[in-house]
Simulated assay, not measured.
Amino acid sequence: MTTPAMPSTLQIGLSRGGLELRSYFREKSAVAFTLAMPVMLMLIFGMIFKGKVGNTGVDFRQYFAAGIIASGIMSTTFVSLGISIAQERDDGTLKRLYGTPMPKAAYFLGKTVLALTLSVLETIILFVLGNLLFGLKPPSTPERWLTFAWVFVAGVAVCTLLGIAISSVPRSGRGAAAVLNLPYIVLQFISGVYFTFADLPSGVQHVGALFPLKWISQGLRSALLPDALLASEPAHSWEHGRTGLVLAAWGVAGLTLCLTTFRWKRRRDG
């Protein structure tokens, strides 16, 4: 009798991703908080903000909408994953999974499938709202579509790795939301989401430029908004090369932190 072949790590990971999605969408409160928060911020602040960005002729609400899309990517990856993994560690789920024959990489593949799916869904929702309410247009050329695609994929990958890495910081699942939301909220204010980045104090600009959200926001602006906006960018350039380098550096840092600090058990479990 031929022994049936064992499923590959990829197959198990994709299956795990399906399970993650089904479990996630059963939690209506989690779905509402993760997907609705950026939507509510876009609606509220979009109705408040008026005027143009400097002398560029670009509606500030379009600038803001592009930043909120970047912020939404961080919400569905860094924040959502970090909280859920910390809670799974706290309730013993990770410990039980660690004792099964499931390849450990399959667990992270499953989380990646969840993060990517939520990011795509969030981006579509925010873009449709931005288009209907503020006139945000899709990329106008194949080159801009390519820019949008690689910035989106790089942003999801980096924030997913950082979300997995920071999940080891909260001491309990109950405190995870506070630990994850604090840096998320601060980064939104210093990364050109709620304010034109060039209008921020120079010291704040230098701090914001150290983190990936600023570069994800700038990359999405370069794909969605006209080149007239370059006049309001600090470098008067979209800096695609620097954006790629910064996101790559954060990706390496996030992967290193995942490999060296991730814990399958609670601290009190030893």
Rank of each mutant, 00 (worst) to 15 (best):
I85V: 15
V79K: 04
G54H: 08
Q87G: 09
L94E: 06
P183Y: 01
V156C: 02
L116S: 10
L132V: 15
G92L: 09
F148I: 10
R221P: 03
V79F: 05
I48H: 13
V79L: 07
S23G: 15
Y24A: 06
R263N: 13
S168I: 00
T2W: 15
G203Y: 03
G270V: 13
Q205L: 02
I124T: 13
E143P: 13
T56L: 04
P103E: 05
P142H: 09
S23L: 15
A65M: 06
G13N: 05
R263M: 11
E88I: 12
D90F: 03
L224F: 08
L229I: 06
Y184T: 03
A149I: 12
D90W: 03
S75E: 11
F134L: 03
K111I: 01
A106Y: 10
V128S: 12
V58Y: 00
S232G: 02
G251L: 06
V246M: 04
V53E: 07
S15G: 15
P103V: 04
A70N: 01
F25N: 05
P4G: 12
L81T: 14
M6P: 11
E27T: 09
P101D: 11
A198L: 10
A248D: 01
S23H: 10
S202N: 12
L180G: 08
L133D: 04
G17F: 07
E239H: 10
G18E: 07
H206S: 11
L41W: 13
T34A: 11
F211C: 02
Y107N: 13
D269A: 12
P38S: 02
F189Q: 01
A106N: 12
R266Q: 14
D227A: 13
S191F: 00
F78H: 06
P170G: 06
G57D: 05
A253D: 07
Y194A: 09
I216E: 02
K111C: 02
V169Y: 01
L161G: 04
N55I: 11
L121T: 14
L129C: 06
C159A: 09
F78E: 06
A228T: 14
A32S: 11
S222V: 05
S222Y: 07
R266S: 09
D199K: 12
L182S: 14
F134P: 02
L43Q: 05
L133G: 05
S167T: 02
V186Y: 00
V156L: 07
Y107E: 11
F262Q: 06
K214D: 07
G244P: 10
T93W: 15
N181H: 10
P4I: 14
F127P: 03
L220E: 03
A65Q: 09
T3N: 15
F134A: 01
Y194R: 08
T196C: 13
A198N: 13
L213D: 04
L116P: 06
E143Y: 13
L121P: 10
Y194S: 11
S222K: 03
S8L: 06
G130K: 08
L259K: 11
L14S: 09
G57F: 01
I69N: 01
T117K: 05
Q205E: 08
M74T: 06
L162I: 08
T160I: 03
